[in-house]
Design a protein around this nucleic acid. Sequence first.
DNA 1: TCTGGTCAAGGTGGT
DNA 2: ACCACCTTGACCAGA
Length: 295
Amino acid sequence: MRIGYPCINRGIGCTSSRAFRLASYSERRLVETVAQNLDCLESVLRWNAEHGILFFRITSDLVPFASHPVCTYDWARQFHDRFRRLGRLVRRHRMRISMHPDQFVLINALDEAIGQSSVRELGYHARVLDLMGLPASAKLQIHVGGVYGDKPASIVRFVERYRSLPDPIRRRLVVENDDRCYTVADCLEVNRLTGVPVLFDVFHHRVNCSGESVRDALRRCAATWRKRDGLPMVDYSSQEPGQRRGRHVEHIDIRDFREFLEAVRGIECDVMLEIKDKEESALVASAAASRARRR
DNA sequence: TCTGGTCAAGGTGGT
DNA sequence: ACCACCTTGACCAGA
């Protein structure tokens, strides 16, 4: 079991998600920013390797405006060697990588233009992982999308659009149960119709549950991952006390995490912690997971 | 140098 | 009609 955290290392003193306003876009600015972001990503991956954190979610902001029409610059060519080097680092340490395109990616959108910009955005994400030379087990996780007042029809639209996705996207795409609309059961239905693996989010499952126990839900989701997809990925978080339902914790609740480990015992998976303090909680979780393994 | 309003993009649910 | 939230902060104009 690899333990990971998303996008940012808060202690390391740099960020790989530097960006700038669209109004100040220039090629020079883009190249500068991407160079800094890649430098920082390398520092973070090295830090992770040294600390035994072998799962990491790369930020969508690595290349700002990559899928925006304003960006006509060939950043992939410019940074080809840098990406290759990062990929070698990842493979050398047998690290796992994911990306999570943001909420604007809706492949089942009613509006065709939104569907198309979503495909462009996914294409950018796939390009990053391809440039790093990572296998199909490096995943892009998205939600099924909007409901638009008719879930069955929206699932059908997802299935149709999924089938016409370019292969570089499709081979990496996985769907995750969300905290409002699409439950584990809905995602499993999408899997049945498309074969797309289902990434189990245990916290969303608590907030938006289709009735299965955590163990049962994870087992069913895990069964949707084929050999080439790698170990099933799981998102873990828990409720911040006193805050609105669905709010992620600031720091790992170690008792809750141990319960989670107990519930998933014997089911192989890689766990991404969606917790605000990032690498700090990842270190705590990693130690807890090692102790649990030894027992 | 510091700070608060604002930033490419959509949908949902609560007020 | 408006706002907070989403997985996540950082830019930048004006003081």
